[in-house]
């Protein structure tokens, strides 16, 4: 049994809404697990069930070999960082950090030492006497983390903690969280709807949709090998291009071109997925793109345009290539990196 074990966990709210469907998942000790999915997909509910803030309708949650379904949140030995930080507004930073320790009846000297150690680690030693209202967004974020770290919990739970920060600070804090987690080595679960955050932070990633884990794996596995239409569309920026198609006798006819000898026995209606970065310009091309718009990011260019049948399409090329608006590009799929999904079920078929 692994460190944290969820077995067929289901959450049904009193009004009948099913937020989480029979989800099973295990997290190893020291692992950084990320739940990613669109808003309302049940990822936060799942996290809150681990924390004990939501009742579990069905299923079991085991933490460190102990069933915690009925254990009070305060006795689960978990720490949580909330989206709005939930710092205690009337206490200074020191007391914010010390409060959880005081409730455990730890003596004053030990508390002081622990708080000071955590403050040093997070570089908030200078603000210990300040109230949260006198801190900037990034500092508040650090205090919220400090409050989690200082208790030395079995597991850290992060509920979209970066979404209140501006873009630059978010990237900085993202790196700090990752570094900190590696340094402290505590098992962590991080919930986010931002796929870049998810990719960069995770040891393993759970893509959740409609209360179901669509795919579980390392970020690269999920990026390279999406198992469903949803995962393929959700992970990767800019989004994967999808084209309607049909397979007959191992030949896929998509909108305006054909691919022969595909590696699938499936027959029927499909969706063909091609990532914008898996395309290149060449002579004997499959796809003709009429360019509408070019976004120059410096390192890369994002080329948006339309296929012959007016379908929107995106192509990503190195930033040193100049591409004119309204020009026509002939594109090829690199190394046969394309994905085919059953149109009716959304499952991958190649």
């Amino acid at each position: 049994m692994s460190f944290l074990d969820l077995k067929n966990v289901t959450k049904i709210y009193p009004n009948g809404t099913k937020a989480v469907h029979e989800t099973s998942l295990s997290v190893d000790e020291g692992e950084f697990m990320v739940f990613v999915g669109p808003s309302g997909c049940g990822k936060s509910t799942l996290l809150r069930m681990v924390a004990g803030l939501e009742d579990i309708t069905e299923g079991d949650i085991n933490l460190d070999g102990k069933l915690i379904n009925e254990v009070d949140p305060s006795e689960r030995d978990v720490a949580m960082v909330f989206q709005n930080y939930a710092l205690y507004p009337h206490m200074n930073v020191y007391n914010n950090l010390a409060y959880g320790l005081k409730n455990r009846g730890i003596d004053k000297e030990t508390i002081e030492q622990k708080v000071n150690d955590a403050a040093k680690l997070l570089q908030i030693s200078d603000y210990l006497q300040r109230k949260p209202s006198m801190l900037s967004g990034g500092q508040r974020q650090r205090v919220a983390m400090g409050r989690a770290i200082v208790r030395n919990p079995k597991i850290f739970l992060f509920d979209e903690p970066l979404s209140n920060l501006d873009a630059k600070l978010r990237i900085q804090m993202r790196i700090e969280i990752k570094k900190l987690q590696q340094k402290v080595g505590v098992t962590s679960i991080f919930v986010t709807h931002d796929q870049v955050e998810a990719m960069t932070l995770a040891d393993r990633l759970a893509v959740i949709n409609n209360g179901i884990i669509e795919q579980l794996g390392t970020p690269i596995e999920i990026y390279d090998n999406p198992k469903s239409l949803f995962v393929a569309g959700f992970i990767g920026s800019p989004q994967m291009n999808f084209l309607d198609g049909n397979i007959k006798n191992k030949t896929l006819s998509a909108e305006g071109f054909e691919i022969k000898d595909i590696d699938s026995d499936f027959e029927g209606e499909v969706k063909l997925g091609i990532r914008p970065e898996h395309l290149s310009q060449s002579e004997n091309s499959l796809i003709n793109l009429k360019v509408d718009l070019v976004e120059q990011l410096g390192s890369d260019n994002l080329v948006y345009g339309q296929l012959k049948n007016k379908k929107d399409f995106c192509y990503r090329c190195p930033g040193n290539q100049t591409i004119e608006k309204n020009s026509n590009l002939s594109l090829n799929i690199e190394n046969n990196k394309y994905y085919i999904f059953d149109k009716s079920t959304g499952k991958r078929v190649n």
Partner: peptide, 17 residues
């Protein structure tokens, strides 16, 4: 905000505290 109560719960506060 509810998060304050939840956060306090995780920090071991009971109804009285």
């Amino acid at each position: 905000p509810d998060e304050l109560l939840e956060s306090a719960k995780l920090d071991g506060a009971n109804a009285w505290s």
